[in-house]
């Protein structure tokens, strides 16, 4: 087991995809006032020009992780300009941007095996081709529901990426290494808000408890194993092996927040096989509408 190998994560200049007609170089186009990206971190553009190609199974695995993050980024981005305070517009936007970055990296890598670009995969696949699990497509609800979803996702992703940095696939390991630092912040954000809302006012306690009940049916699916996991071996992480630590971590937060662990039954799930809830179709319709109006166009 090796950690992210620098040879795979070499920072390189992104190759312009078209002739550069602009007045000068723009630098990092996604640079932001509120988000500092370390200069040597792996960017989607670096993966795009890397010659490494996953086998079909690892590509399918990358697609799963990429779709999870893409769908959640799409959900969270809706909060920008609608947050309970300005700081949350920034924080949720930041988290969405991180997730979108992870999604792009995974999709670009998967696309190397499939002969497709990140945008082919995001904009031109049908609902049943998406491999995300149901939790990620759940609607934002009120701020409490969004935080409950974030709490589950960030604890899960933190455990996942902590292990995935040791993937035998160097690109997967490198993406995980970058994502891990960001997801650590997401987990802190969700934890702090769960505490504030759970142990804030009677109203916030009630809403936060209801929010947990609402997202809980979708927790189990995150930890389902399936034959693909057997096939990829140490390139991936067996989801069921994350469960025990997840249960301990989330129970500690829920307990400190004076909330109760929900006992609602699980939903059947099926996202990894392309079976989705009713919500995904609308989400994709909105995300894909403009790209699909202009087949072959570049943006």
């Amino acid at each position: 087991m090796t950690h992210a190998q620098p040879t795979q994560a070499q920072p390189t200049q992104a190759q312009p995809t078209h002739a550069d007609h602009s007045l000068d170089s723009f630098g990092d186009a996604a640079a932001s006032a509120t988000r500092v990206t370390p200069g040597n971190a792996l960017r989607p553009e670096d993966i795009a020009i890397s010659p490494d190609k996953p086998n079909d199974d690892v590509a399918e695995y990358a697609l799963r992780l990429g779709d999870d993050s893409l769908i959640l980024a799409q959900r969270l981005s809706h909060w920008i300009s609608r947050g309970p305070e300005l700081e949350e517009d920034i924080a949720l936007g930041n988290i969405a941007l991180d997730l979108l970055g992870h999604a792009r990296s995974f999709l670009i890598y998967a696309g190397h095996a499939l002969g497709k670009s990140e945008d082919d995969l995001a904009y031109w696949r049908e609902e049943e081709d998406f491999r995300s699990v149901w939790l990620f497509e759940q609607p934002n609800g009120d701020f409490g529901v969004t935080i409950a979803r974030q709490l589950v996702v960030s604890i899960y992703q933190h455990l996942l990426y902590s292990r995935l940095v040791d993937s035998t696939d160097p690109t997967i390991a490198a993406i995980a290494a970058k994502a891990l630092k960001e997801v650590d912040y997401h987990r802190d954000h969700a934890t702090q808000w769960t505490l504030r809302l759970g142990d804030g006012t009677a109203e916030s306690h009630r809403r936060m408890q209801a929010a947990l009940e609402l997202v809980w049916p979708y927790v189990d699916e995150l930890f389902d194993d399936d034959p693909l996991i057997d096939r990829i071996g140490d390139a991936g992480v067996r989801p069921s092996t994350l469960r025990e630590q997840f249960d301990a971590d989330i129970a500690a937060v829920i307990d400190e927040a004076t909330l109760d662990l929900p006992t609602v039954p699980r939903a059947m799930g099926g996202g990894r096989r392309g079976l989705h809830t009713e919500h995904l179709g609308y989400l994709l319709a909105e995300m894909q509408v403009l790209a699909r109006k202009h087949p072959g166009a570049s943006w």
Binding site: S77, D119, A291
Partner: peptide, 8 residues
């Protein structure tokens, strides 16, 4: 944002 035509 939700309809941007490419991920970049």
């Amino acid at each position: 944002i939700t309809r941007a035509p490419s991920l970049k």
